[in-house]
Design a binder for these strands. Structure first.
Lengths: 110, 110
DNA sequence: AACAGTACCATGCAATACAAAGTACTATTT
DNA sequence: AAATAGTACTTTGTATTGCATGGTACTGTT
């Protein structure tokens, strides 16, 4: 049980929340999302992101369209669906409750 | 992918943080910890807590002593070790960074 | 002595993030 | 046009975690 592993474990379950949030601002393809997260100090790699996008799509939270690129193969641009927006709101609530609970527990020393 | 599962996944990795935090305030045995968490709206069950305590003890972050009880079998009172305190500080940093990153990503709509 | 209550422990499962390797398409270089 | 580099997407296997479930052991009461 080292700190690196703990970091990884703490991230569990928040990525779908972050992905939906990012897409609720505007459509994007995988590399856009990775860049967006990286700029907020949340590193995600392809092997993590692609399966997640597929799962979110299969659950109806996202859909996608192919779009040509000037500098490489075509890209899958993902778009959040109305059902995805609803789910996102629930995730927000869950996240806020969790942060609130953790703060309550860990700030008792003050 | 339902909301209940997402809730469960978001909790992953924060329990050890909460346990160490709770014990840094004062020694406690399992039921104390469960009560403490429950009062902060973070439900933990025995099947989760006991293995976690054992793992934290095996890693040197906790130790315990047996203590008699007036109303039942003896209890294992856990105490955080100096190494545990150090690890707790690292977990605090990790948690704060994570919350900060998620906020940055999910509050872009404002 | 039998029972209920409390406390601790062990086993098996589902879900996730990630590493690693692979496939496919495009543009550039030779 | 063939080979190469770069971009984008996909698949497979692994370690870790939270939890449900069932079980063990000890105490006090009836």
């Amino acid at each position: 049980m080292d700190i690196e592993n703990s970091k990884a474990q703490m991230r569990k379950g928040i990525l779908e929340f972050c992905i939906l949030s990012t897409l609720s601002v505007g459509d994007a393809y995988a590399s856009d999302i990775i860049e967006s997260m990286k700029s907020s100090k949340l590193i995600v790699v392809e092997g993590t992101l692609y399966p997640l996008l597929t799962r979110l799509k299969n659950d109806g939270f996202l859909n996608y369209r192919w779009e040509e690129s000037k500098s490489g193969p075509p890209r899958k641009y993902y778009k959040i669906t109305p059902i995805g927006e609803t789910f996102l709101k629930e995730l927000e609530t869950t996240w806020n409750e969790l942060v609130s609970a953790v703060n309550k527990i860990t700030k008792k020393n003050n």
